[in-house]
Design a protein around this nucleic acid. Structure first.
Lengths: 366, 366
DNA sequence: TGGCCTATTGACACCGTTGTCATTTTGAAG
DNA sequence: CTTCAAAATGACAACGGTGTCAATAGGCCA
């Protein structure tokens, strides 16, 4: 049997030995005081380069890691971020977490995830309490919380550092830091793609109003039509939420029109999934009778049949970037350096798949 | 795009920290020593009932919350769990997190999420380090980590408390605590459902071997066939992984058979999504020419066309239960009480949707 | 009442780090 | 070679709890 061939095991004894080195151990080995080691850890100025190197060598040798409990107990600073979200979209959230976690890990920060109800009137209080109780250094705010002016103002007044991830065409320059995503531009690209395929009557299904990305995406749609000289037809524009059901219902409405659209642009992939289901249930062939586009590059968009044309947001990278900037700002601030970082923007990328095709295409024989 | 203007400054070092009450405040107001308050907080025995009441009153009056940093710094105990997972399935993970978080919140515990690579040979070390560095009181292990005997043994030897979520028909009674999910039973129900619809040739697509749920689900399939007197046909059974692509490829293989199956059971919804796509791409009508079943009740299963017949796992509840048990065990253990909790089981529930239909059904006219 | 045992309580050190402030070293100018 | 400010470093207390162990209170019995 394989039983005997044990893989490397950490025994209890070794665990005891592995009991982390403390700042004292490092100090002794480096022949300096604890305080000096502390200075090196915190990257404080006025440590002689020679000393810093010597200390760093011992830190590496012992693979010393400062104890977060002790740190946050003693200092006003803390070493954990909170990630605040309220989004039913699991795929988005997972990527958000991945990105923020990557930034936190590389900077030695912890992460406290905090799903919440964006519509709760007590949300601001809840977040303040969270920050205080969990000793968070700052918050990363995802949409739609990041887009609630009142909440942002309250956090700012409570002196809670944060970084927003928002949908915007450009830096909002509203005095609060953010990373912005140009949804309008991507929606423009999607609409343009449909137009270039020969579609003139393009339906649009709105997403939820509490998300700024909704008007942004609509704007991209409208701008593209205008630029290509296609008149806006109000009957082709349907309000709704970011849900499958609203996509299904909206599509049914559009497909029942006398002069029905040859393409439908759903504000996200879930809406587009509803459109796809509506088309299937009406026996309408996608993409030959109807082109469909979504937004988000969700797993669904790859797995549906046909796969959805959509826009890919680099959610993980955006989140990593947001968290990294927050951390950098926090550290700068703690060192008394000026915090003057620039808001950066990201642009989702058009992903063309099988759900969109030229308007004139014939249905292929089976 | 990246040239935006300077962003505002967040200044934290001027923050006047809203200091909450400490154990000292409570002690003074209650006229007892700090230590006694500590005893009350920790629910230790040998505190006079009168004293306990008096102290508790002041704790409530000040809405005092002990500082987790201070506690975990001084004592060996800590007040945070780790949630360890390696699963590409976002929906599953989100529900897992929800459940664990709910249990943690209600017990005043923190939560550290820890996505990882289940195949990494250094995983055991990584987890030991994680527990030590983040001072975690225990770990909740999701599949497939929870099903790696070597890892479990190592954690156990390192005296790291944990709770496993595993796939098993019944309590494994292997000496390590777990919450188990009877995948076999649900797979049996799905297969039975197909059989009762009149299907005799039912294809089966395996999931990844590193998950115990894979053989469990296969066993349910095999047992149901046997119980209904249907001979096993090896050609209808295809190995693979829990992926869309494997579902697609596996389905192509099955559908190319001379005597092709009239139903296909994919080991999870992602596989079933691949089967659905393969059927669509071959112009095979689902469910009238081919019934398809998945497993998991993912969002996809509701949004695909037709919606997938599947099995619903109460992931959130399972996770909450697992975390709650771990916390209870930890507290018992800290108080010196015997820890002797019973492993509990959950059973996924059959969800019938549009992707399965009687074998004899005719294709409806459009 | 005194003795003895147990239940209850408190004094104090200490966990690992950082803030404060004093002290030492360094380097450039005089 | 001084002188003096600036740079570099260190001593020590403190953060908010808990572990240890000694001290006190209370109850019971002779």
């Amino acid at each position: 049997m394989r039983e005997a061939q044990a893989a490397p095991t950490i025994t209890t004894h070794e665990v005891q030995r592995l009991r982390s080195a403390t700042i004292k151990d490092v100090a002794e080995r480096a022949g300096v005081s604890m305080k000096t080691v502390s200075r090196v850890i915190n990257n404080e100025p006025s440590v002689h380069e020679r000393t810093r190197a010597k200390v760093q060598r011992e830190i590496d040798a012992l693979s010393y890691q400062p104890d977060p409990s002790a740190r946050s107990l003693r200092s006003t600073r803390s070493y954990a971020l909170g990630l605040v979200y309220d989004n039913p979209n699991a795929h988005y959230i997972i990527n958000l977490q991945r990105g923020v976690l990557a930034a936190c890990r590389s900077s030695g920060f912890g992460l406290q995830i905090h799903p919440c109800d964006s519509a709760s009137p007590k949300l601001a209080d809840e977040l303040c309490t969270l920050v205080r109780r969990s000793r968070l250094a700052g918050l990363v705010l995802a949409p739609p919380m990041s887009e609630q002016p009142q909440l942002i103002r309250t956090l700012s007044e409570a002196k809670i550092p944060f970084m927003r991830i928002i949908s915007a065409r450009q830096d909002p320059q509203d005095g609060y830091p953010c990373v912005y995503v140009d949804d309008r531009d991507a929606a423009y690209a999607i609409t343009e793609h449909l137009i270039q395929l020969g579609h003139q009557r393009i339906g649009f299904l709105w997403g939820g109003r509490e998300h700024r990305s909704s008007p942004e995406r609509y704007q991209g749609y409208e701008d593209a039509l205008k630029d290509y000289g296609i008149a806006l037809d109000r009957k082709l524009i349907v309000p709704g939420d970011f849900t499958f059901d609203d996509g299904f219902r909206g599509a049914r409405k559009l497909l029942a029109l006398k002069d029905r659209p040859s393409a439908i642009f759903g504000s996200n992939d879930e809406i587009a999934a509803g459109v796809l289901a509506a088309a299937h249930s009406d026996g309408i062939h996608v993409p030959y009778e109807l082109s469909i586009a979504g937004f988000e590059d969700s797993p669904f968009s790859k797995q549906s049949w046909p796969a959805l044309t959509t826009a890919r947001q680099a959610t993980e990278e955006i989140a990593r970037h947001a968290a990294q900037r927050l951390i950098t700002d926090l550290q700068r601030d703690a060192n008394g350096e000026p915090v003057n970082s620039t808001n950066e923007g990201f642009r989702p990328e058009l992903v063309v798949r099988g759900s969109t095709a030229p308007r004139t295409a014939a249905v292929p024989r089976r």
